[in-house]
Amino acid sequence: MTTETATDQTTEQPRGLDADPVISVRDLETHFFTDEGVVRAVDGVNFDVHPGTTMGIVGESGCGKSITAKSILQIVEAPGRIVNGEIQYRRQSGEAVNLLDYPANSGRMRAIRGGEISMIFQEPMTSFSSLHTFGNQIDEALKLHTNLSKDERFELAVDWLARVGIPNPSQRMHEYPFRFSGGQLQRAMIAMAMCTNPKVLIADEPTTALDVTTQAQILDLLQRMQEENDMAIVFITHDLGVIAEIADEVTVMYLGKVVESGPVNDFFDAPLHPYSRALLTSIPSMFTGSRERLPSISGSIPHPQNRPSGCAFHPRCQSFINGVCDIREPNLVSVNEEQDVSCFLYED
């Protein structure tokens, strides 16, 4: 594992946190139109992803982080629909486009999906078809996004399998996914996502279904892939330990909204939002006594149909201001050059 950071490499395009974002999500709203009513799964989300860096999106189950990721590629399943917002994407050519201008099934959207922006998923075991060989499934991506011949595609796929650390790659190409272990499958999925040289990789909880040792290996692999291929990563997780390991910036989501965002060090050193603080204090520390009760966030996540008024976090908040938080909704505002927060404690 190399120790050089992403910014050490010299490339033509500007990269790092100071460079222009490769993806800018603005006011994204993705709602689910169910028989019981509209669920605002993503309800006005804003964040930027900078080239060559990792944006970690954190939140509890059901906070809308996965739907946000799927919205970028416009692969939200019915009855979900993107109802508002912009997803500005700076293409390989430098041209800036709003992805939401492209219809979900248009050729232009499909050229970006899996080509310039790839995605890997939470459950490697079920994310492949058991009826097709692995080779068949990786070839599908190459066939769609390259002009290579059949033999060249096979060579390239074998090369990628080797790069993600799968032994006997040319033999594994002919095997079915159920012959791979969970860790191998996640590596294989990374190879499948990387083989088209994407500029952005969206990783939707890629380590959640894996054991801790394999998790660490996959995180290392992703960081190596990022360095070698000059690629931005949107990393979705509920695991703050993983965020500390891999992210450059963090966006914290609660009930479909961004409550805080900023550089990863600021987030861990000086979290602003009461929710972020509560999350961080509920992590067991080395210094916690063995019989001590771990602090937890009081209450539970509200039912999406039954969203609290005002700030959605107010019923669980330690800093709840009566008559303010339960009535008005806070806006995401900058508190300093790098950190944004959505809380009345920071509004003038």
């Binding site: 999906r113 994310s127 078809s129 097709h132 599908e140």
Partner: peptide
């Protein structure tokens, strides 16, 4: 999930439906 994976690769909707879930 394998349907979502195929969709994320940029396969057209009908192609991926015929290739994966219909086979299953």
């Amino acid at each position: 999930p394998y349907v979502t994976t195929a969709r994320a690769k940029g396969v057209t909707e009908w192609q991926l439906i015929m290739k994966y879930p219909v086979r299953y």
